[in-house]
Design a protein around this nucleic acid. Structure first.
Length: 813
DNA sequence: TCCTCCCGCCAAGCA
DNA sequence: TGCTTGGCGGGAGGA
């Protein structure tokens, strides 16, 4: 009893995978001493035997031989089955993996060169392929359909295709990307994710209609096959099934990758989009499952083409299968990113700088006035933890120690921003340029009297041709602007959407001078707790329910508005007044940028909003805001020159920057490195953290937290707790330490940032929080000696900062 | 249990 | 009418 089946399949696999040339793959004569090749299954084996015994193929004598051999094989099989009982016989069969479509596609692709010579066309005969690969025709169709969608093959006639290879691929991908953008797939993805999130807290799906209508109106239900000039589409059934075909589905799937940033698409989202954006309402399960099946088919082929790679995304609802684009980067057509007329909600400023403002506005909202920000992927797990905890904490709304979810969110945001700061390495020259760009003419000076609210119009520097584009964010109380720098490579970095944490973009950006077509400027306005995406049973609501009951008929916008109005003046986080646009603009808004306070850059007056403007436009966004910023960090221009921004890995919380993120970050220039190593300027990390702490109101203005040594190597304490234990929305257990450790590959050292939540020292005060960062080896549990500052801020000699409790009294709504 | 996806039925449409 | 094409979903292997 021999088990030739696996041998045959394995050897053939190796053979075919190593075949560089399809020509060498002609049907080999069947060796008599081996059984008929590769009987995958008993049924197919039988079919093959029957086929082999066909009179058209063999002579009578051969037939007899084959018949004998067939009977021998059958006898062998029978014998095998008798001797290898049950499981053993099954084990002798090739596994599913060996029969996978991906593997089959590999074999298929191995037959043809990636770039065939245009002079000699390769033709694909399905009969040959099916015979040589020993698969059913049906499977080949799956492969060919996907290849057709990429214009790697095209159908000539029945049974006959032409192999184009990858020649058309760049063109195809560009076309697909364009169509994907036109179809607003980004918005659809965000819509779906938001819907998922809301559905989680709102199982009744009250907002489904809203979603469905958005989809139905924005997207044609049937999208035709995207063709390339010269690559004719000649499907067998041109009309009837064309729109459902694997081809179209494959194209749509690819589009999703091409328009997404990062280029990761979960199967679930893809399936929902592909099912038909107008059918979200009656999305039945079987349809969904079918779509998922097809997506797996497509994904297998695309994986074989090395265009995508399977990954998993971890979201609040768990681990989801997804695919990441690993194919060639599709550069946007210059035309496509040219500033087009947009529909931002910003009225044209009535000033002489209208043009530049418009341009900047357009640059900020290059597409339909909606710019999306999402978090860095490195924080997905952190976000997940917070989300999970928030849910857990729902049952304990009166926990004695609370901090605002929004505080948390904002911390996350700022951390992320800081991370981006670290990631977005820039050269000293670039820094200088940034400062130079923040010229008085360019930066609008806020007028405190005209700014009852916090959200400031964004000022932008004039056109920058550098790789980093700044947006100046003036701050009224401090008179200091914050420059938001976004590296183009990250400006569109959109990571997995997490609806619980979002920032709303400022719809009216009174910005000036942005005209760089490739600089994508993202402005930020933080919003309290990502409210518009909260479900009704979220802790926020449950906590607030007694104070401000909501009716179910309230829209998200209304809730948002109510919350924003209910916010105390001293609330920590900026909130954008919720208006008609808020639903559309509050999707995913974490910028991959960084904030640099610019104390030495005075604000010009030309570009600022005039009183009229503010009344008419700007104030619309501002009236509901209150300032969270209690101070700023003086950061002279000279400091900007010497910022050393290493790339960080974040280890203890399992927040790992993706290789792409690291890779995407520009290499630190020598000048930057050298300057940082020799400079006496304040460490940027210190500045960033001070800024962060001040920005979230944890330390008052002017207070600086010592942050040296900045990159001190500190082993991660086993006692430190994951943020998931102390998160989220409202409750933090006493003594919990949130610790983040960053590893800088450049400095080859760790950097620890931890938050410790302490019991309130006064009965009335709900909480105290310590910021213990750059922790000394004593660890977070070392009780530091306190020394009170006049403002209530307490420091320790270890660098542990005790935050005045008042700043942490936050109650949701 | 859920993910993954093979497998083949069978209908649409072409030659 | 036979054959090609491919939508579709059951259900099984695998994690």
């Amino acid at each position: 009893l021999k088990t030739p089946l696996k041998q045959a399949s394995t050897s053939q696999l190796v053979l075919t995978e190593r075949q560089p040339d399809c020509q060498s793959l002609t049907t080999p004569p069947k060796p008599k001493e081996t059984p008929p090749a590769d009987p995958w299954t008993p049924t197919s084996n039988l079919k093959m035997l029957i086929s082999a015994a066909s009179p058209e193929i063999r002579s009578r004598e051969q037939r007899r031989q084959l018949s004998d051999s067939s009977s021998e094989v059958l006898q062998t099989k029978h014998c095998l089955q008798e001797h290898l009982l049950g499981d053993e016989y099954e084990k002798s069969q090739p596994s599913r993996k060996e029969k996978s479509l991906g593997l089959l596609c590999h074999k298929f692709l191995a037959r043809y060169p990636d770039y065939p010579s245009p002079s000699q066309k390769s033709y694909i005969c399905l009969d040959e392929v099916t015979e040589e690969l020993h698969v059913e025709r049906r499977r080949i169709y799956d492969i060919v359909n996907v290849l057709e969608s990429l214009h790697m093959v095209s159908r000539l006639a029945r049974n006959r295709y032409v192999w184009h290879g990858r020649h058309n691929l760049p063109q195809t991908l560009q076309a697909l990307k364009k169509v994907g953008e036109e179809n607003k797939y980004i918005q659809q993805i965000q819509m779906i994710k938001r819907r998922e999130y809301e559905h989680e807290f709102d199982p009744d799906g009250e907002r489904n209609e809203e979603m469905a209508s958005s989809f139905g109106s924005s997207e044609q239900s049937e999208m035709s096959f995207v063709e390339l000039p010269g690559v004719e589409f000649r499907a067998a059934s041109v009309n009837g099934r064309k729109y459902k075909s694997l081809r179209v589905m494959s194209q749509k799937f690819v589009m999703l990758f091409l328009v997404s940033t990062p280029q990761i698409v979960s199967l679930e989202v893809a399936a929902k989009i592909l099912i038909g954006e107008d059918q979200l309402e009656d999305l039945d399960k079987s349809k969904f499952k079918t779509k998922i099946r097809r997506l797996y088919d497509i994904a297998n082929v695309l994986s074989s083409l090395k265009l995508i790679k399977k990954v998993h995304v971890t979201e609040e609802r768990g681990r989801k299968p997804a695919f990441k684009w690993t194919g060639p980067e599709v550069l946007p057509n210059t035309q496509d990113i040219k500033l087009e007329a947009t529909s931002t909600t910003c009225s044209p400023p009535i000033s002489e700088s209208i043009t530049s403002k418009e341009q900047c506005s357009k640059a900020l909202f290059p597409s339909k006035g909606k710019q999306n920000f999402t978090r860095h992927s490195s924080l997905i797990k952190l976000v997940k933890s917070i989300e999970n905890d928030r849910r857990k904490i729902q049952s304990a709304p009166t926990s004695p120690v609370k901090i605002s979810a929004s505080t948390y969110f904002f911390i996350i945001f700022l951390l992320e921003t800081s991370f981006s700061l670290f990631l977005s390495q820039m050269t000293a020259e670039e820094m200088q340029m940034k400062c130079a760009l923040s010229s008085p003419e360019a930066v609008p000076k806020p007028e405190p009297s005209q700014q009852p609210a916090l959200s400031q119009p964004l000022g932008a520097c004039p056109a920058s041709h550098s790789s980093v584009s700044p947006v100046i964010l003036p701050h009224p109380q401090s008179g200091v602007s914050y420059a938001i720098y976004l590296h183009p490579s990250q400006a569109h970095t959109v990571t997995t959407y997490s609806p619980g944490f979002m920032l709303q973009p400022l719809p009216c950006a009174s910005v000036t001078g942005m005209k760089s077509s490739n600089s994508k400027i993202l402005n930020i306005i933080t919003t309290e707790e990502g409210d518009t995406q909260r479900g009704p049973d979220e802790p926020t609501k449950s906590l607030a329910a007694e104070e401000r009951p909501e009716t179910k008929s309230e829209t998200s916008s209304q809730r948002c508005l109510k919350r924003s109005q209910a916010l105390p003046e001293s609330n920590l986080i900026k909130r954008r007044k919720s208006d008609e646009e808020s639903l559309d603009t509050s999707l995913t808004f974490f910028p991959s940028g960084y904030l640099i306070p610019l104390t030495h850059c005075t604000h010009g007056t030309k570009a600022e909003c005039s009183t009229k403007e503010k009344a008419g436009v700007c104030s619309v966004q501002h009236t509901a805001y209150s300032s969270p910023i209690t101070g700023v960090i003086p950061m002279p221009a000279s400091e900007l020159k010497t910022v050393n921004i290493p790339a960080f890995h974040i280890t203890p919380l399992n927040i790992m920057l993706s290789p792409n993120s690291i890779a995407a970050a520009p290499v630190l220039s020598n000048s930057c490195l050298s300057s940082s190593s020799t400079s006496s300027a304040p460490n940027p990390s210190s500045s960033a953290l001070n800024f962060m702490l001040q920005h979230i109101g944890l330390i008052p203005a002017g207070v600086q937290v010592p942050a040296n040594p900045v990159l001190q190597h500190v082993p991660v304490s086993s006692q430190s707790e994951n943020i998931s234990h102390s998160s989220g929305s409202t409750n933090v257990q006493e003594g919990k330490v949130i610790e983040l450790t960053f590893y800088s590959p450049i400095n080859e050292s760790n950097f620890v940032f931890s938050l410790q939540f302490l019991q309130p020292k006064e009965p009335q005060e709900p909480q105290a929080v310590t910021e213990n960062f750059f922790r000394t080896p004593g660890g977070p549990n070392t009780e530091p000696a306190l020394s009170a500052n006049s403002d209530g801020t307490q420091r320790t000699s270890q660098g542990t900062l005790y935050i005045p409790q008042r700043k942490l009294e936050v109650s949701e709504d």
